[in-house]
């Protein structure tokens, strides 16, 4: 559905590219329709991950790392949706423009862009990711803080 919508909206825009300045071109690349399709994709589930491959068979080390981090936090599959950008080149470029973020993977929580692999790694290490997931009701709050067990 998403794929079809983005694809159908892009060809109509192409002729305009030759005229605009590069910055205008960049901003107008995503049509309103494509943008709203991606908007509904990022809010389709509390946690939405745009990745290469799927959680079972990630096709890139960075995507794999993010899947593993989410797994560590025991984000349940019902609360998470992943999109494989390798299956959909329009989505792959569309999401980069939508998020204004140049790389994949990209994580959204409750429709809000959180970051890519580097950011998730550092948020995971600092404990911010757990707080964020708890705050958004993605994982249950721990009644009492676990004793410090970080040995990294």
């Amino acid at each position: 559905m998403l794929r079809a919508a983005i694809r159908s909206s892009l060809p109509a825009l192409r002729p305009a590219f030759s005229q605009g300045s590069p910055s205008l071109l960049f901003r107008r690349l995503l049509s309103e329709q494509a943008r709203s399709q991606i908007q509904s994709a990022v809010t389709a589930s509390p946690v939405v991950l745009f990745m290469k491959g799927n959680p079972q068979i990630p096709q890139c080390g960075f995507s794999r790392a993010v899947v593993q981090i989410l797994d560590l936090h025991q984000v349940s599959p019902e609360k998470m949706k992943t999109y494989d950008v390798l299956e959909d080149s329009e989505l792959r470029s569309g999401i980069k423009e939508f998020s204004e973020w140049p790389t994949i993977p990209q994580l959204y929580v409750n429709g809000e862009f959180v970051g890519g692999c580097d950011i998730l790694m550092s948020m995971h290490q600092s404990g911010e990711l757990e707080q964020l997931l708890e705050r958004h009701g993605v994982i249950p709050k721990l009644a009492a803080e676990e004793p410090q067990s970080a040995q990294s």
Binding site: E100, P102, T103, V114, G115, G116, D118, I119, S122, M123
Partner: peptide, 17 residues
Amino acid sequence: TLAKHRLINELLKNEIA
């Protein structure tokens, strides 16, 4: 962190692409 990374991403946009 997100804002910091965006600064770098924007600066090196063409190279990262």
